[in-house]
Design a protein around this nucleic acid. Structure first.
Lengths: 225, 225
DNA sequence: GCGAAGGTTAATAAAAAGTTAAATGCCTTA
DNA sequence: TAAGGCATTTAACTTTTTATTAACCTTCGC
């Protein structure tokens, strides 16, 4: 089963850890726990959680300090930090946002509320990170970096090559006509000779191998499935 | 003066509208108000607010209904909806998230908390995550001092150089287009020649070495991972 | 085996980025 | 306030990379 996400809960009280863990696990999250910031940081490095629930008041390394360190580390650029805080600490809440936290939840923790808040935050996250990339066969075609990953191997394509491959791979198996390819990759107004597409196809095949792009004579090209 | 963002406040109580408006305006937001959902929707269409503060309990069209309509409209895909709710309505809060709201704030409203919550939400939206410093590879990029630390070595960059490196390093591996770089580092209105970016890139490479910033021809620059 | 569609190659054109030096403007300091 | 220094920008030029074309070759169905 695919989980909803990974959450690291950090609090010095064992009761709370257990209570929160229980409720999160019931909702389908993978949960890890730590008793303080010092313990949490290396653990977070290892598991790369989607969200960290962080008590403000803790011995050894408190929540604010931990939060600052997390936010300074590019490994955690995509990690949300949510504070757990007692009502009395309202001022700390505001401090918390200065340290870069994304939200806070007040104690005493009410399970239903906790869950709906976390769902809302994580939903926001998945919405924000638009995945401009395609995974097909053993290829990972990454629009962010304009790279093709095949296992450990990284292959750099020129722009037109990339756009062409990206188009074909966006619907594996579908045959794209030359006209359609020209319109999408080159733009409607551009006038180029037919051989131009062939040459680009060839370059891609040269770099990736022949097994990805197939020719359908008289029709066009497709990404082989 | 540039404003922090546009907020539409919807509540049936004039007192609350005034109280909230006053506090938001003081913080540099542009504020509009409406007394119910029916009034709010066409207004929202017109002003395209960044965020809508919505009372749950209202006559004519209540918050939940309004929220659902907003979230169903693609014009508001980027608009955050935050509920205002009385403590007693806890169950409604959860309902609220089902209707697609992004957050909620409990009444009675405390100005400081209100502001910091909204700031946090809008910061997430506009700037993604602002961190005062970034750690990538062997570099520590420190916003406070505009210095780059590499082990014991300290390297001073000029402001534009720093901002440029900071931007690239904020998402290692991601390719940033020249247009995007211009908008973020130089500002939207500024008109500078393309070569300007190159020259700054060159300066950074001169000071740090060539291994950090990569070129993706036809696309832009990236921080190498 | 013929012809059309596509493949291949190398040459050429065009685009993008790198480089350098000089001009500009701003700030500091004597 | 004039001189110097530094950051920034521009222009002119070079180099590199990518895109396109033309000419020729291969394949495949009929």
């Amino acid at each position: 089963m695919e989980t909803n996400g990974k959450i690291l809960v950090v609090d010095d009280e064992a009761d709370i850890l257990e209570f929160v863990s229980y409720n999160l696990k019931k909702e389908g999250y993978e949960v890890w726990t730590a008793m303080n910031g010092q313990e949490a940081l290396p653990l977070a490095k290892k598991i790369k959680p989607d969200l960290i629930l962080l008590d403000v008041m803790m011995p050894v390394m408190d929540g604010l300090e931990t939060c600052k360190r997390i936010k300074a580390d590019s490994d955690f650029a995509k990690t949300y930090v949510v504070f757990l805080t007692a009502r009395a600490e309202e001022y700390s809440e505001i401090e918390g946002f200065n340290s870069g936290a994304d939200d806070y939840i007040a104690k005493p923790i009410k399970p239903k509320l906790l869950i709906s808040r976390l769902n809302a935050i994580l939903r926001r996250k998945t919405k924000e990170i638009v995945s401009p990339s395609i995974k097909v066969k053993d290829l990972f075609i990454d629009r962010e970096t304009f790279m093709i990953h095949r296992g450990e191997q990284k292959i750099q394509l020129a722009r037109k090559e990339f756009e062409l491959l990206f188009l074909l791979a966006s619907k594996p198996g579908k045959v794209f006509t030359r006209d359609y390819i020209l319109e999408k990759v080159w733009g409607e107004e551009v006038l180029v000779v037919d051989r131009t597409i062939d040459v680009h196809i060839r370059k891609i095949r040269e770099k990736l191998g022949d097994e990805y792009i197939g020719t359908v004579k008289g029709v066009g090209y497709k990404f082989e499935v």
